[in-house]
Amino acid sequence: MNLNIAITGLNATDNPAPGIPVARCLREANWKGKIIGLAYDAFDTGIYDKEILDEVYLIPYPNEGEIAILDRLKQISHKTKIDIFIPTLDSELFNANRIANELKNFGIHTFLPSEEQIKMRSKSLLSEFCMKHNIPVPKTQIVNDIRQLQNAVAQLKLPIVVKGVFYEAYVCHSLEEAIIYFGKINIKWGLPIIVQEFLNGEEYDVACVGDGFGNLVGKVPMRKLRLTDKGKAWAGITIYDKVLDQISEHIISALKWRGPCELEFLKEQKSGKYVLIEINPRFPSWIYLSAGVNVNLPFANVKLAVGEKIKKMSSAKAGFTFVRHAIDLVCPMNYIESLTIKGELIFKK
């Protein structure tokens, strides 16, 4: 494809963003257009990889609002044409949705879940959605103060999991511990706080792309083999389980999900049943595995963004492993200078 794709989420430290793996997937599809990196900081790590990106531009942080990002994308488009915009971070999705029509008028396509879909899968509403559609989910309570937290602990029984509305989750074995993490998460991510029963089991994730009409276009199921101390996958292996496939299809169908997402499941040790833990409304950071098993989900998403009809992709072959590994990139001073002074870095013209 000869289209220019702009991708965000390029920082890849111990909690890597999905942008660079998405770009690598497109490179695997013999990309002929430019792959443009959109970064928030001159030290977002992935932006210095000139083998993956053609150009890099700094953009405003999501909290500056949708108009700021729209203006910046238009400004960049005057320098280098952007055909497709792929935001890969949760925090960018509401802004991206609000400007999607205007971007389309400007010739920039997106393929994203709607604002309503994003809200429906939010941690505070997921439990309700799952109950309605008969999808197994841990018992959940939404709390806004310590009194509600105490009630939740009494009802769910210890241990419990205390989760932020956007990020972070802690297993707590006492009320005191739960109160500490309630405060910690509240300061960082605000209210409400999600309190869930603790289930023992193995974690399985499914990367998906939905067509927006209830069809699951492609999926890659994976079992996490190694985790970082932040609980992020550091190694994983593709699996094939009909039951997991059916639940994934059901969820995407119930949500009529449009675009990429990651379904996070726990296979409960006691019952052997899959329980849905979270739906992330974007590609996971391990999405390069999808290109490795010939179910290139970012490429499928790009095709959908430009209105191509695509057939349901075949299942990923089980037994393919990814292992994440860090490398050092060395770059001359003028790279950082260019980003700091001009807000851009052009590797290839």
């Binding site: 399985y204 389980d241 037994g319």
Partner: peptide
């Protein structure tokens, strides 16, 4: 369909990833 066993005795369960 659900299990692969290599001649060296390495067994992979497709459904669990174990």
């Amino acid at each position: 369909e659900e299990v692969t066993l290599t001649p060296n005795g390495f067994l992979f369960d497709h459904t669990t990833g174990l």
